[in-house]
């Protein structure tokens, strides 16, 4: 349970900026095409989440990895969680 909480705390920091940019891109697409496409949101989110993972953790706060290491989450599992969770959220947005 604490492992899941650890993954959620890690992912929460990525989710908010990645979703915000994905929504902005969707709105820009809406302005240009006059059609609302959640496909754009989902696709953007899948692409953006790993980018924000890199910026926020690898680049800006590499020291924060130790918080998650101590919870039993290594770098590989954190990268895997980012990709898998983002993919699931993206797929849900495709399906809507």
């Amino acid at each position: 349970m604490r492992l899941i909480l650890g993954i959620w705390l890690f992912y929460k920091k990525i989710f908010v900026p990645a979703m915000a940019v994905a929504v902005i891109l969707t709105l820009l697409d809406l302005l240009l095409t006059r059609t609302l496409s959640l496909y754009i949101t989902g696709f953007s989110f899948i692409m953006l989440a790993p980018v924000f993972h890199f910026i926020l953790y690898e680049f800006r706060n590499p020291g924060q990895y130790y918080f998650y290491y101590n919870l039993g989450l290594n770098k590989l599992s954190l990268w895997a969680s980012t990709i898998v969770i983002s993919f699931i959220i993206g797929i849900i947005l495709f399906a809507i």
Binding site: R2, L5, G6, L9, F10, K12, K13, N61, G63, Q64, Y65, Y66, F67, Y69, N70, L71, G72
Partner: peptide, 27 residues
């Protein structure tokens, strides 16, 4: 080493976006 060893590094490692009570529950 998971669950056998924990390590406190020299530099602060707390995730800034999380409340202390949640951090305690996680740890």
């Amino acid at each position: 080493s998971s669950k056998l060893i924990t390590y406190l590094p020299q530099d602060n490692f707390l995730p800034g976006h999380v409340r202390i009570k949640t951090i305690i529950s996680a740890y």
